[in-house]
Amino acid sequence: MGPLTRLPDWQPRLHAWLRAVNGRPIEPGRHDCCLFGAGAIEAQTGVDIAAPWRGRYTTMAGGRRVLRKSGHADHVALIVALLPEIHASAAREGDIALVETAGELAVGLNQGAAIYVLTETGRLSFAELTPATRVFKVG
């Protein structure tokens, strides 16, 4: 996959997508933190980077197995393979961020000074963007 390019109308597309998914129940393989990040990328670029994995697992352990079979140790390795990592100070709205939650790295979406993350109920919440947060450039 080559570099991603944000569409000219990426901001309204991203905002509409965020409104549409806010509160959608977590469902591994259909709507989880990784697919939340992939959906945000698709809203901005028109490219579904998760197409090879979407719908192929029903548990988070199953998701990890599917990723390993495709050559990625985990969701972090997949993100590293697909997007360029940048310093948190260079993050802009719509970039992907990895946030530590309950001892694991969850995929979130930079919105400026904070990061959108999914809660267990599927509602959007905010996490703090810190210099220690790993951020990946979209387009």
Results as ranks from 00 to 15, higher is better:
G71F: 04
Q11V: 15
G122A: 01
A50P: 14
L78K: 00
P3V: 09
E128P: 12
A73R: 13
A20S: 11
I26H: 06
A20W: 03
I79T: 07
E85M: 02
E85F: 07
R19D: 08
A127G: 03
A73M: 07
Q111P: 09
G71Q: 04
G29E: 04
V135L: 11
I79F: 02
R13M: 05
T121C: 08
C34V: 00
L4I: 08
V47W: 14
R6V: 08
Y116R: 01
P25F: 13
G139M: 02
F36Q: 15
H87C: 11
S70I: 10
L82I: 00
I96V: 03
V138Q: 04
M1P: 12
M60S: 09
V99N: 02
R30K: 03
G71W: 01
L7W: 01
A132W: 08
D9Y: 10
L118E: 04
G122L: 05
Y57T: 10
G94K: 06
H72D: 03
R54Y: 10
A77F: 05
A40F: 06
P28R: 01
V47T: 15
Q44C: 00
R19V: 12
L4F: 15
V107G: 13
P131L: 12
V117P: 09
D9E: 14
I41D: 06
P3D: 10
T130C: 12
E104N: 03
R30Y: 09
E42W: 05
T101I: 10
L82G: 04
H72A: 06
V21S: 04
P3H: 14
A90W: 10
L105G: 06
P12K: 12
S70K: 13
A97Y: 12
D48V: 01
F126Y: 08
G63H: 11
A114Y: 05
A51E: 07
G108M: 06
A88R: 14
M60K: 15
G103I: 09
C34W: 04
G122P: 06
A90K: 00
R123I: 13
G2C: 05
A114M: 09
Q11D: 09
A106D: 11
L118M: 02
T59F: 10
A102M: 05
P25S: 06
V80F: 11
G103E: 06
T45V: 12
T119P: 05
P25E: 13
A61H: 10
V76R: 05
Y116T: 07
I96E: 11
G23M: 11
Y116H: 10
L83D: 06
P12A: 02
R123C: 13
N110V: 14
C33M: 12
G112T: 03
T59W: 03
L14R: 06
I26D: 04
D32A: 09
L78T: 02
A114E: 01
A73F: 05
Q111W: 11
R19K: 00
A114R: 01
I96F: 15
G55L: 03
A113N: 12
A16E: 07
A113Y: 07
G112H: 00
P52W: 00
W53S: 09
T130P: 14
R13P: 10
E104F: 02
H72V: 05
G29H: 00
A114N: 08
E104Q: 01
G29C: 03
Q111T: 13
Y116M: 09
T58Q: 12
G62E: 06
H75W: 07
A43D: 11
A132H: 15
A127E: 07
P8V: 14
I115M: 02
G139Q: 08
T58V: 06
